[in-house]
């Protein structure tokens, strides 16, 4: 299945900002971040179609996945 994966802040370093990537059916967010070599403990927030999601979440084909390190402001 094809997903749009977006990375932000330091996660872009050595990777990408936005990519269309193909994954086998049943791929979880954990599989995605592991494949991108993003250390799990550095993850702040993951959004799938604008909603917060956890590592065990399985995106649907065509979903947009956004992965952020721990960030803040205000």
């Amino acid at each position: 299945m094809e997903l749009t994966v977006k990375l932000f802040a330091t996660f872009r370093d050595g990777r990408f900002e936005k990519a269309q990537l193909d994954y086998p059916p049943g791929t979880t967010l954990a599989n995605i971040v592991d494949a991108l070599r993003i250390p799990r403990d550095e993850i702040g927030v993951m959004l799938v179609m604008g909603r917060h999601a956890e590592l065990e979440h399985t995106p649907a084909p065509g979903d947009t996945v956004a992965i952020f390190p721990r960030i803040g402001g205000g």
Binding site: A9, I71, G72, G73, G74
Partner: peptide, 14 residues
């Protein structure tokens, strides 16, 4: 890390 590197505007994308 995040605030020194990007400032508060790091929030726009999220």
């Amino acid at each position: 890390q995040a605030l020194p590197a990007y400032g508060t505007n790091v929030l726009t994308n999220i």
